[in-house]
Design a protein around this nucleic acid. Structure first.
Lengths: 229, 229
DNA sequence: TAAACAATTGACCGACCGGTCATCTATTAA
DNA sequence: TTAATAGATGACCGGTCGGTCAATTGTTTA
């Protein structure tokens, strides 16, 4: 499973609260109360499987078994919620999907293959649960709200950039080992990530995870040459 | 400009009404009353620049300078409206963007370059108008509603398939002319379209049309080999 | 000219939207 | 033990959502 929700979220809460609170206070927070986490967990799942605009606060509260007043005790607005959801999901992603796919023990170009596998199994297992492929939460949100909220857009961009960096490291390593001929690793990394999002978009549109296996082989063929100096 | 709205929409109305209506009646419809077209035009622009869920009927009516009752005289529901919007936009797309990019007078692989140019200028001019890159309406809708409405999903798939066919024709022609080495043109066409959608997603997330020029060169490097027999 | 029908109006519907607030309870620190 | 504060409650707010409808106006056919 790609989700290390409990571990990662408990850690992040501890970290953020420890800054300006006494230690024993922080311990209480991180051990007993989980309402905030339940809200985020509920929102994460709904936003991922439907859309930001389509999911209401009431529905999230019902799913987390709390009242609306409690929600606004933890989040000033729906927008602040989705901001937190992106943060948490990015952490899940980095610790789960990305960490698993970009395993440093693997030869660099095999990691790229592994990204395809990871994406396939993720979407496939989601489909088995809900009947529909949810796609990539970041891609979904990026297309839904990029024109409407520049702060959210920037946050999503940051997530993409850190994912792109993983591709770039891998490509640089592959070049160094002579596994591939030199290229512009920065741009090629971005291109590969774009292709990955495109594949997932098609898989979602066809509601068929096999699309990822069909189109996957092209990922490693993507190249952008270094520009001449 | 990629939009031949007036010409194409007038033609489609004529066609669809001529089936079961007397001729002079059809002529009146296609010459005087344009309310339905104004509704679709307003919805097309709003859905493209924001999202399906975020745009209300009231707002579309205001934009088209009609009352809500008039809207429901032409469309049974919001869902039927977006169905019609997809139809019209697909026609605009085929007659504009696609027809222009896949110019048969050009050598096949140059058409692929031209797709990048067309996508770039389209997004760039949209940004100059509204301050934000709208992306691809079909990609936007596919990610927003694929999990919620299988009929809409199927309709969007049909649009993608017809676009994919243009890529496939072009690749087959290039292979025949010896411009590229043989490959699986069906899959490679789908892969190229996926990459195109991925590029546009990134351009929208960064709100920068230049992304399309940066990542564009990789489009022609995408290859999926024919599977062995 | 009259009947028929397309087109339009604007008030109206219940449900739900994001968000507020006074109030109460549970926990903690002093 | 008490004062302070976090957490939770549920009624409530104005506004908007998609959608309905009876009545009116405009145009065409008979």
């Amino acid at each position: 499973c790609f989700c290390l929700y409990l571990r990662s979220s408990a850690f992040s809460r501890f970290k953020s609260l420890a800054i300006d609170r006494p230690v024993n206070y922080t311990l209480r927070m991180s051990t007993t109360n989980d309402t905030r986490e339940r809200i985020i967990e509920a929102a994460k799942s709904r936003f991922h499987n439907r859309s930001y605009a389509d999911v209401g606060i009431k529905e999230i509260c019902d799913m987390a078994s709390i009242q609306k007043g409690s929600f606004y005790h933890f989040f000033p607005s729906k927008r602040d919620l989705v901001l937190a959801v992106i943060d948490e999901f990015a952490e899940d992603w980095a610790n789960g999907f990305v960490a698993e796919a970009f395993d440093p023990a693997l030869p660099p170009m095999e990691r790229i293959d592994y990204v395809i596998d990871a994406a396939f199994f993720w979407q496939k297992s989601s489909k088995e649960l809900n009947g529909h492929i949810p796609g990539c939460l970041f891609g979904n949100l990026a297309l839904e709200i990029s024109t409407q909220d520049d702060v959210l857009r920037a946050k999503l961009n940051a997530v993409f950039t850190s994912a792109k960096d993983r591709f770039k490291e891998t490509l640089d390593e592959a070049i160094e080992l002579g596994a591939i001929s030199p290229l512009d690793s920065e741009l090629t990394a971005e291109a590969m990530l774009a292709y990955l999002e495109g594949m997932i978009l098609f898989a979602k549109a066809e509601n068929d995870p096999e699309v990822i296996y069909r189109l996957g082989p092209a990922l490693k063929t993507i190249r952008i040459e270094s520009s001449a100096h």
